[in-house]
Amino acid sequence: MSAESTVIQGPRIRLRPWREEDREAFAAMNADPEVMRHFPEALSRERSDALMDRINAGIAQDGFGFWAVERHDAPGIIGLCGLAQVPWEARFTPAVEIAWRFATAHQRQGYAEEAARIALAHGFGPLKLEEIVAFTLPANLRSWGLMERLGMRPDGDFENPRLPEGHPMRRHLLYRLSRRDWIDARLGGE
């Protein structure tokens, strides 16, 4: 199965490749101030389309990326979740990160956790990654709370080089999960 056709199934959702018809819903999600409150700014349609193009290029190049998330019982995307190479230098790179973003109507329903667990299983299973990292702002309690529920461990903070010195969102928390710890947690019945 090619990377562009990978579909990963979960109990309520699937992670799947992006389709052209996803662009409008993706742009609406990326323009929503509530969804984007922990990002420097909401995205215009043009920037959202460019992001989808970069995501698709990453999937084609690496064989994995941030997939579209869709419920089994309803067509259309509800968010994104997946794995991607960190494209900049920091004390922990090179690295593969896990990330998620969900439309406001689909938050606080367990979809992010289900999608993240599916993505981790794919990363440590078929992709045989040795480690996956995640990062977020200290103020994003829901995001780093999910990182901890996933078994990720805090590893201090860092200055995000994509943001200028002095930017209020430059400081990020770093979390890590090794393949060994993920396997041990699964064997332990988690």
Rank of each mutant, 00 (worst) to 15 (best):
G110M: 09
G110D: 11
Y111V: 02
Y111E: 06
Y111I: 03
E113L: 13
E114N: 08
A115P: 05
A115R: 07
A115V: 08
A115L: 08
R117G: 07
I118W: 01
A119I: 03
A119L: 01
L120I: 04
L120K: 06
L120F: 00
L120A: 06
G123L: 12
G123T: 12
G125M: 06
G125P: 13
P126T: 13
P126M: 07
P126F: 13
P126H: 02
L127W: 14
K128T: 12
K128P: 00
K128D: 13
L129V: 14
L129T: 13
L129D: 12
E130T: 14
E131P: 05
E131Q: 15
E131D: 05
I132R: 10
I132F: 08
V133N: 09
V133K: 01
A134M: 02
A134N: 11
F135T: 11
F135H: 13
F135V: 02
T136N: 04
T136Y: 06
L137D: 08
L137E: 14
P138N: 02
A139L: 09
L141N: 00
L141T: 13
L141R: 09
R142Y: 00
S143E: 01
S143Q: 03
S143G: 00
S143P: 07
S143L: 03
W144Q: 01
W144C: 01
G145H: 02
G145R: 04
L146H: 04
L146P: 02
M147T: 01
M147A: 15
E148K: 14
E148S: 09
R149Y: 01
G151C: 11
G151F: 04
M152L: 11
M152V: 01
R153Y: 06
P154M: 00
P154Y: 00
D155N: 10
F158V: 00
F158M: 11
F158Y: 15
F158W: 10
N160D: 15
P161R: 06
P161V: 08
P161E: 07
R162W: 05
L163N: 10
P164S: 10
P164W: 07
G166R: 09
G166I: 08
H167V: 12
H167G: 10
P168G: 12
M169G: 05
M169C: 00
R170Y: 09
R171C: 10
R171W: 02
R171N: 08
L173F: 09
L173V: 01
L174A: 12
L174Q: 11
L174Y: 05
L174E: 00
L174I: 09
